[in-house]
């Protein structure tokens, strides 16, 4: 999968140039890993509260990128505002979806959630494909993040470094919100036993809606971050979401930190594969999933489904 655009320098032989290419692929891996982490984190949060696997996650990631594109080209609103507004707009869209459709699935088999969100993904992607075809729309890197830094051992494009660091911060903030705050404690309690939590006077349905909005907002944020790197395409999330599913199977959805670490780790492994054996870079995550299933069927964080 060519998510974060291949670097020009393909490795040809030993020496300094080759090491540069290795670092470059590692950076690409870290960037893809950021997207895997943000998306699998959102999937895990949503799964915890709603008990559904959000197949629309990839489509909503794509919407995030498109909202940023619209904001810039129609409203003249820059990248920094888009980083804030796109997740909110897509998050509200997600909350409307939850209120109007997903909430009716409570008590039904989990699989219906998968089917419903798959349908939503098809609708959203189809609509965007109708108006924008399948080609990519350019989104410029903001002025403040243009250029690069020479780190001595490699040349680091500032924007790419920013994506990795910012994603990491957002992931850790989400982890903090859920694991360390009162709100997060309520959320985790409602995941375990919604009826009891409602009896304590906490509005669980509203919490579910907000949780879906949060998960979806994380996907949209990843979309905005990826817009300058991967261009804005209607199908940018379609293939990505399947890789993220494999990531989720490998890491399990039991732990927030597990999702973050697995996401980044798999991105890095994919980057390394691109350097050492590029033919397998598309498939390495799936092959790892198979290996993990054979060795430890419950996934790395070890909770049964």
């Amino acid at each position: 999968m060519r998510l974060a655009g291949d670097f020009q320098g393909t490795p040809k032989g030993p020496g300094a140039k080759s090491m540069q290419a290795l670092y470059a692929q590692l950076l690409v891996g870290l960037i893809n890993g950021s997207f895997y982490a943000l998306l699998s984190l959102g999937l895990a949060v949503i799964f915890g509260m709603l008990n559904i696997i959000n197949f629309a996650h990839g489509a909503l990631y794509m919407m995030g990128a498109f909202v940023a594109y619209f904001l810039l080209n129609l409203g003249g609103i820059n990248y920094w505002w888009a980083l804030l507004l796109a997740p909110i707009i897509v998050g509200i869209f997600g909350m409307i979806l939850e209120r109007t459709m997903l909430q009716w699935l409570t008590g039904l088999d989990h699989l219906y959630g998968l089917l419903l969100t798959f349908g939503i993904a098809l609708i959203v992607q189809g609509v965007f494909q109708n108006y924008f075809g399948s080609s990519g729309l350019p989104y410029a890197i903001p002025d403040q993040l243009k250029g690069g830094m020479n780190l001595g051992f490699m040349f680091l494009p500032v924007y790419r470094g920013w994506v990795v660091i910012f994603s990491l911060i957002v992931c850790l903030a989400t982890w903090f919100l859920i694991e360390k705050t009162q709100l997060g404690a309520n959320l985790r309690a409602a995941t375990e036993n919604p009826t009891l939590v409602r009896a304590f006077g906490i509005n669980v349905p509203r919490m579910i809606t907000l949780t879906y909005g949060l998960g979806v907002g994380l996907a949209a944020l990843a979309g905005v971050l990826s817009a300058p790197i991967n261009q804005v395409r209607p199908l940018m999330g379609a293939d990505l979401i399947i890789v993220v599913f494999a990531v989720v199977v490998i890491g399990g959805m039991g732990s927030i930190m597990g999702s973050i670490i697995t996401g980044f780790a798999l991105g890095v492994i994919e980057g390394l594969t691109k350097y050492f054996y590029p033919e397998a870079s598309n498939t390495v995550v799936f092959v790892l999933m198979v290996l993990v299933l054979l060795v430890k069927p419950t996934g790395l964080t070890g909770r049964a489904a």
Binding site: I242, N282, T283, V290, A305
Partner: peptide
């Protein structure tokens, strides 16, 4: 491989396996 997990995990695994084959057939 896939029968080791239940429910939605099973769905995600079969989807991932078919995507793996897709990329193999692509190359």
């Amino acid at each position: 491989i896939s029968i080791r997990r239940q429910g939605i995990y099973f769905s995600m695994i079969t989807l991932a396996l078919s995507q793996l084959l897709y990329f193999i057939y692509l190359q």
